[in-house]
């Protein structure tokens, strides 16, 4: 039996795909808000991915991945059902604190839609009124809408171009929800840093508790390298062991966004190299079988 076997895969778009990985022990231990470190092969990077869902009965965890760089593009190619991951460690980070909010907005932007799902479900199971706000660039990138419908009391879909739901960003969705509901206790926002920053800004005036899940660059995920340090208020915290959830109103997002640019050049080199090998593989002529002349 393979360790960390991939038992299901679904492609949501050209770039977004879902992997369901067998790891009964982790499925049992995982909680909303936690993440794993994945290595797809021995020469691979250790990349942090949020646990988008877990199924304790089936013993699987679900990862939703966007092919944006070399490692994730490679995973999109090589991670197929029946295959396995080289490394999978976790669940890492402190689980999200499930508050006793009676009414909550769960905001997911792009890939952040996946990890916000278990949190929204946890709120629902806790008896809260859940408003989902999901943002995508366009209609084609939408995924998990039906999953959210089953657990949300209200669902607002926002697309940048208006091809589905309302036209605008998730902040427009948040403002819409805030206009109709004066009694929101908590907002959870997961997505690109710029989106989380805007979401935190949107709730700042009303003073609504807003939790964000940070995604800085990591190596080990166990508090050893300090690469994932973030400024929260006056303190320096490690997202891997002190987070990844923090108070969105205290996080220094500008610092986070600068730090996320650290390996831009190397990412470009690696991605170009990867695309190059893919092209070569695609255009390679199949070897001609030699006739048996014996």
């Amino acid at each position: 039996m393979n360790r960390f076997e991939i038992v299901a895969r679904e492609d949501y778009s050209d770039v977004t795909f879902m992997l369901e990985v067998l790891h009964p022990m982790m499925a049992r231990a995982a909680n909303p808000g936690q993440f794993v470190i994945v290595m797809s092969h021995a020469e691979g990077e250790r990349i942090p991915l949020t646990i988008a869902d877990f199924d304790r009965d089936k013993g699987t965890i679900t990862l939703v991945i966007q092919a944006v760089g070399k490692s994730t593009m490679e995973m999109q190619t090589i991670c197929q059902v029946g295959g396995s991951l080289y490394g999978l460690a976790g669940p890492m980070g402190i689980p999200s604190h499930l508050s006793d909010a009676r009414k909550a907005i769960c905001v997911g932007g792009g890939l952040g839609v996946a990890p916000v799902f278990p949190q929204a479900r946890a709120f629902k199971q806790n008896g809260a009124y859940v408003i989902g706000v999901l943002g995508f660039r366009n209609k084609d990138l939408i995924f998990w809408e039906d999953k959210f419908r089953t657990i949300c009391d209200e669902l607002i879909i926002c697309t940048d171009d208006g091809s589905a739901g309302i036209k605008g960003f998730v902040t427009d969705g948040i403002n819409l929800a805030l206009k109709h509901h004066q009694d929101i206790d908590e907002v959870i926002a997961i997505g690109p840093p710029v989106m989380m920053k805007a979401s935190a800004d949107a709730t700042r005036a009303a003073g609504i508790r807003t939790m964000v899940s940070l995604n800085p660059i990591m190596v080990d995920g166990t508090g050893m390298c300090g690469g994932c340090r973030v400024k929260v208020g006056e303190e320096v915290r490690f997202a891997c062991v002190d987070g990844p959830d923090f108070d969105g109103h205290a996080v220094d997002f500008d610092d986070l966004m600068v730090r996320l640019r650290r390996y831009k050049e190397e990412e470009r080199v690696a991605t170009e190299r990867w695309s190059e090998t893919c092209r070569m593989r695609a255009t390679a002529v199949d070897p001609i079988e030699m006739p048996d002349i014996g």
């Binding site: 020469e43 691979g44 990077e45 250790r46 070399k70 490692s71 190596v219 080990d220 050893m224 390298c225 300090g226 690469g227 390996y263 190397e266 990412e267 080199v269 690696a270 190299r273």
Partner: peptide
Amino acid sequence: LSANELLTRCNLMRARDFPNVDTP
């Protein structure tokens, strides 16, 4: 960066062979 990060990237993740390995 911390020495831990430098050394982990270089030793465990063999980043000195980048881009033949993926860790930069």
